[in-house]
Amino acid sequence: MNRWLSRSYLTLVYLLLYVPILVLVVFSFNDARTGYEWGGLSLRWYHALFGNRAMVQAMWNSLWLALSAATVSTLIGVLTALALHRYRFRGKQLLNSMLFIVMMSPEIVLAISLLALFLLVGIQLGYFSLLLAHVTFCLPFVVITVMARLSGFDERLPEAARDLGASDFTMTRTVLIPAIMPALLAGWLLGFTLSLDDVVVSTFVGGPGYEILPLRIYSMVRVGLKPEVNALGTLLLVFSLFMLMLSQWILIRSKR
């Protein structure tokens, strides 16, 4: 392909991807009430945002949920990846396929299946049901991230540690865990972001007692325009950008 042509094409697509985001950021500082006209610079929507107690509560709820879901899914995901990598056991293929299916299936299918389960078992919809659901859809991503790291791992390293006198547990602590640390952190960050962003699953398994940010945004944007959403979106964008850069930095630094 022509070099010049391919570069201008890339530029064009990136523009299209970023224009809406830029518009959002610019309009978050817009003083005008209507949302489509420019009324001068202002931080009024940020004030409005933080003046709204329910909104602030939803932010904290979301952060806490994302934090706990990412942590639990990382714990389980790392153990799963280690088990898949190190042990031979019956049904390994089945375990792999289940994780793959969770990752590939449309979120809404996971959402209704979990709703059915929660209602059948009698789990009240709220923080706990959200946590279980979020951990479930984050899990495969953590496993994949850690497995990718382990697949490039020198099989002799654990043996070397054992040879030098480390028990299986000490070896895991001193050799395996440090080796997968970057992937572990990257998986955690990914899980955190996925949880913070989720609308589809949370719509089904969330409850009125525990309002989270995406659901609050959802109810705001369904009808008309709400300039506060611009401000909130900008904050979320900056936050995700920070998280993404952090995870890339961790991965790149670990490769050296």
Partner: peptide, 8 residues
Amino acid sequence: FQNYALFP
């Protein structure tokens, strides 16, 4: 070990 297996 063959490829040394030094802890990186």
